[in-house]
Design a protein around this nucleic acid. Structure first.
Lengths: 249, 249
DNA sequence: CGCGGATTTGAGCGACGTCAAGGAGCGTGG
DNA sequence: CCACGCTCCTTGACGTCGCTCAAATCCGCG
């Protein structure tokens, strides 16, 4: 089964595993009450499952509770571009909620659990909880900033710079979310990297090999171990995104 | 003089030239009053002027009233990537207002007039006018959607497809805003196109020549006349963004 | 063991970059 | 009016980064 909706066994927001992380901001108890009410259930999907499909008009909006996914678009002939990766605390489907129809798809990389919200209640949130509304705008502005960086990367960096940037970026996010045990392991294939960087899979492989030869990464078991994040940042010339504490819903 | 602040001679929001356009949504009179109060003055800059600089902490937030500009980022060695174009009704500096520091720069293409808002009042807007707060989120989500399209384009389209997409995109936006007299004229140089598409200027020139040979465009006088928007859409395989009525502040 | 997906590697090619030079248009100063 | 210097556009020659085609290997899974 690809998707499972567990209305009954939902994690109460008071016990949200993300909330204690220093990466995320605190909630007031009022906000927490509202979000808890806003949350309608949980959805768990298997790796490879499509969470949202381009063109769909979903009644829902999600926050990722655990797991990895990615957003992508495709051209008519099948060429695929991965736009960004989706990780715990990220809002999924906001674009669809606001413009009516999803303009991109979302696919799970690992088993993913999502908090389910109802699109129709978004207006209530804006009316009654301005601080949460501001948080949503904050999250949207952050996504925009990340897309800006990706655009710079794909448009103007060389293959090896792009690859190094992407892996450093993912490693940094994973570390901030404590999604790592000791070493950082990214659950992606080289095909994902290729589709993110706008490169062919063959050239991606050769480029990643160069990074591996330098000891920055190891590719193993359909995933990438990041051994030397600083080396990746040096190769790409990327400074990293400094984020102290960020909101989530 | 590159910039001129005219606090005295500001266009009252009741007489905003954008408001009557079918492209934009209506305001209630209460919203209009607030926005009018929110607006602190107007800023007019000359072509080529930097409106906002990466790294700056501006106390202001702007809406474009007239003219063309673009957002961009640069790498340390000077490689430049244009992220998107800024046109009337667009919000400028929201990212800076929310994350503290601008992560990209904005430069004027033509003479640009901007409505000036104060960043500190953004919280008041969220508290007191949820509908405007929602509009701001709407605008942010729209920008995200456009960046998604650009990313797909740069990552996966060929040079001629990318060029055709970009020009069709700009032509469509210009037409929706009635920034055209008869034919669509885009006030950009080939260097701007190159920096948007992630191509060299030489290859951009050769690519644009192909589009000109097909009769889709004419390059003239530091600007691009779009003669056949449908041809551009056909070449790029881009469907266009359907937008009925959109909000602005 | 066989199969399919992921990774790896080599060979050849083509899209796009770099270098270089020239022309057109425009503003400035003589 | 003309010379100049500047930016932008154009074009050719040539190099290279990244793509396609092709084949081999590895691995988990049924």
């Amino acid at each position: 089964m690809a998707a499972k909706l567990t209305n009954s066994r939902k994690t109460p927001c008071e016990l949200c595993p993300l909330r204690p992380l220093p990466h995320f901001r605190e909630f007031t108890s009022e906000e927490l009450d509202f979000v808890s009410d806003f949350k309608k259930g949980e959805l768990t999907v298997d790796p490879g499952a499509i969470v949202l499909l381009e063109g769909a008009r979903s009644a829902h909006l999600y926050t990722v509770l655990s797991g990895w996914a990615f957003r992508y678009k495709t051209l008519l002939d099948g060429r695929r571009q991965i736009l960004n990766y989706v990780m715990p605390g990220d809002l999924v489907g906001l674009q669809g909620s606001i413009t009516g129809e999803m303009q991109h798809s979302v696919e799970a990389l690992s088993t993913v659990t999502l908090c389910v919200f109802e699109r129709t209640q978004l207006h209530t949130l804006f009316s009654r909880y301005p601080s949460l509304a501001y948080d949503i705008t904050w999250i949207a502005a952050r996504e925009e900033r990340i897309l800006d960086e990706h655009l710079l990367s794909i448009g103007r960096r060389t293959a090896i710079e792009r690859a190094a940037y992407l892996l450093a970026f993912l490693a940094q996010r994973a570390k901030a979310l404590r999604m790592v045990e000791g070493r950082v392991v990214l659950p992606i294939t080289q095909q994902h990297v290729a589709d993110t960087l706008g490169l062919s899979i063959v050239h991606t492989n050769k480029t990643l090999k160069k990074l591996a030869d330098r000891g920055a990464i190891v590719w193993r078991d359909r995933s990438c171990d990041v051994l030397d994040e600083e080396a990746l940042k040096a190769v790409s010339g990327w400074e990293g995104l400094e984020e102290k504490s960020r909101p989530f819903i």
